[in-house]
């Protein structure tokens, strides 16, 4: 781990934040377009050329809407919940590695920070993001919001264990918790193999638990619109809702980034070294498509199915995977 000058770190933070902030509305448009195609309709195509102006219109609409607070709500807590959700989502962006040190010349590392506890950092902010859903739902003072908050609490706690165990196999193989080291271990200097081949079980568990952690379909029970209106964000409107919405998509990007770094060789790919960030973004793009595809394909789980699947299927499989990986590595 090398410590870079403060100004370089600030510049990197701004670049990464702006990059992802501008990708989110495009993903939103992509999702609506693809969902339309999956359901044999056009999707948004009125604003701008072939609907390209739709994200801008969406954001303007959200920004200009009324900020509504119910009588039974706790206003200050309702205000900080979206802030927590967006802060925790953006904070995890910092550790996604986009390229090795020196790929663009100099000592510049193409990642926000490289911390020796990388994977734990990801879990720490992942577990903090729960408070946004919980506080938002509780503070809204509405029964549907409360039910959504309770669902999210139970769901996130259950699947956090599985997502942790699923990455443990990768950590064992790489011998480090740092994402940069994990990617290096998959290159020609390390084991020379992308970890999704030896860790295919861990990868599948990670993706399933990742869908649950981001509360995306088919695990979107905290906001199941057919059962509890919109769950924890029922009483939210305007840009406060927009913050929750944006945080969800940033989390999708983060899970894609972690999957790419841990299982699909991160920045490794053919071509010169300066292409590294392009490779990472291209691989992440495939995972984002997967997220959308699954949403269009699978129906929502029932609540008891969700719980028994998490505790009785995912966690035992992930534990076995870690045990077998450890035995194979030592023997």
């Amino acid at each position: 781990m090398t410590v870079e000058p403060v100004l370089v770190q600030i510049a990197k933070a701004i670049v990464i934040f702006l990059l992802i902030l501008n990708i989110v509305p495009q993903i939103l448009l992509l999702e609506r377009k693809l969902l339309g195609r999956f359901q044999a309709r056009y999707g948004p195509n009125r604003v701008g050329l072939r609907g390209l102006g739709q994200p801008l219109a969406d954001v303007l609409k959200l920004l200009s809407k009324e900020r509504f607070t119910p009588d039974t709500a706790v206003p200050w807590m309702m205000a900080i919940a979206p802030v927590i959700s967006i802060v925790t989502a953006v904070a995890t962006l910092a550790i996604i590695p986009f390229g090795p040190q020196g790929a663009w010349g100099g000592d510049l590392g193409l990642y926000g920070i490289d911390v020796p506890i990388g994977v734990l950092y990801f879990f720490a902010f992942g577990s903090l993001s729960f408070y946004a859903l919980m506080l938002g739902g509780w503070a809204s003072g509405s029964k549907y919001s409360f039910l959504g908050a309770m669902r999210s609490a139970a769901q996130l706690i259950s699947y956090e264990i599985a997502i942790g165990l699923s990455l443990l196999g990768v950590v064992l193989m790489a011998g480090s918790l740092s994402f940069v080291d994990i990617v290096e271990a998959q290159g020609s200097g390390g084991k020379g193999i992308w970890f999704f081949i030896p860790q295919i079980v861990g990868f599948l568990v990670f993706m399933v638990a990742g869908f649950a952690e981001t509360a995306r379909a088919p695990f979107d029970l905290p906001e199941a619109d057919a059962e509890i209106v919109a769950g924890y964000n029922t009483e939210y409107g305007g840009m406060r809702f927009g913050s929750f919405f944006m945080a969800e998509y940033i989390e999708v990007i983060v899970i894609s980034g972690v999957a790419v770094a841990c299982f699909f060789g991160g920045w490794h790919g053919p071509g010169p070294e300066w292409l590294a960030p392009i490779w990472v973004l291209a691989k992440m793009f495939v995972f984002v498509i997967l997220f959308i595809w699954v949403r269009a394909t699978l129906p929502r789980l029932r609540y008891d199915q969700l719980m028994s699947f998490g505790w009785k299927v995912l966690i035992p499989i992930a534990t076995l995977n870690v045990l077998i990986t450890a035995i194979v590595l030592v023997v």
Binding site: V115, S127, M134
Partner: peptide, 26 residues
Amino acid sequence: AAFLAAAQIVVYTGAVMVLYLFVVAY
């Protein structure tokens, strides 16, 4: 003590307190 800090957040702030909050809210 970065490891201890992360463990503190993952275990206490992120898991134990979530259960407390869950029970108290119910």
